[in-house]
Simulated assay, not measured.
Amino acid sequence: MGTTRTTDTTDSTATTEKRTDDETVPAQAVATEKETDAAAVPEDAEDIEGADQGQELDQDAPAPPGTAGVAAGAGAVVAAGLGLASVTGTWLGTLMAERQTLMGQINLQAGKATDQISAMYGTPWHTTALVNGVFAVLAALVAAVVLTRPRATWVRAVAWGGLALGVLGLLISAGMYLDLFGSMPTIPKGTRPGA
């Protein structure tokens, strides 16, 4: 009988150990689930209310439509194009310069021009400078409008490029108009008519 008691004691100890193990595993799993849920849920009600208010604000605020992004990108490209045109010159500037040259020739033939060089060279040169300056100002203005609001990185980069080209074009136009890059040609005194 002693043997039987020992076996019974051993069996009950094994059963107790088994129950403890079975109970321990689900208890650990439940504790892990509670920790995961606690991490996912805000700690107090204020956080929940704040999150709800943030969602309401996001819903009330107009979502940035795709059209605004496209318009900003187009504006940045236009600013860059205008800036480039102000630096390199435009068809309109060339046309206006040729018009001024023609008007200078007409005035010379009519005997109205007192300074031939100014009529044939200076006025067309200054007209080109003015037209390029207008393009430079437009480039700077469009780029500045695009840069007033947060935009995508590429839009801001192109707009900054347009602004830089616009400022450079404005400086070049001012230099052309004020004859900073070269003075107006003059006729030597000994070769003037009537000298």
Results as ranks from 00 to 15, higher is better:
A27R: 02
A27E: 06
A27M: 03
Q28G: 12
Q28N: 08
Q28L: 09
Q28K: 08
Q28V: 10
V30S: 13
A31M: 02
A31S: 01
A31D: 00
A31K: 03
T32S: 10
E33Y: 03
E33H: 09
E33C: 07
E33A: 14
E33W: 00
E33Q: 09
E33S: 13
E33V: 08
K34C: 04
K34W: 01
K34D: 08
K34G: 03
E35R: 05
E35N: 00
E35Y: 01
E35L: 05
T36K: 11
T36D: 09
T36S: 10
D37K: 12
D37Q: 11
D37M: 10
D37C: 08
D37W: 05
A38M: 00
A39Y: 01
A40W: 02
A40V: 04
A40F: 02
A40H: 07
A40L: 05
A40M: 00
A40T: 08
V41T: 15
P42W: 05
P42D: 09
E43Q: 13
E43R: 13
E43F: 06
D44W: 07
D44A: 14
A45L: 13
A45S: 15
E46V: 14
E46G: 15
E46L: 14
E46K: 15
D47V: 11
E49C: 12
E49A: 15
E49N: 14
E49R: 15
E49D: 15
E49Q: 14
G50K: 13
D52G: 11
D52E: 13
D52W: 08
Q53R: 14
Q53I: 12
Q55S: 11
Q55H: 10
Q55E: 10
Q55V: 08
Q55L: 09
E56D: 06
E56I: 06
L57I: 11
L57N: 12
L57R: 11
L57F: 06
D58L: 07
D58G: 11
Q59M: 07
Q59R: 10
D60L: 05
D60M: 06
A61F: 06
A61H: 08
A61Y: 04
A61C: 09
A61W: 01
P62K: 08
P62G: 12
P62D: 12
A63Q: 03
A63E: 06
A63C: 02
P64K: 03
P64C: 03
P64S: 03
P64A: 02
P64R: 03
P64F: 02
P65D: 01
P65L: 04
P65I: 03
G66Q: 03
G66V: 01
G66S: 06
G66L: 02
G66P: 00
T67F: 04
T67D: 09
T67Y: 00
T67E: 09
T67N: 07
T67C: 06
T67P: 01
T67V: 12
T67I: 10
T67H: 06
A68R: 07
A68T: 08
A68C: 02
A68E: 10
V70Q: 11
A71L: 13
A72V: 04
A72F: 02
A72D: 05
G73N: 14
G73I: 09
G73P: 06
G73H: 13
G73V: 09
G73E: 14
A74T: 15
A74W: 14
A74R: 15
G75S: 13
G75V: 11
A76E: 07
A76K: 06
A76Q: 07
A76D: 06
A76W: 05
V77E: 05
V77I: 14
V77W: 09
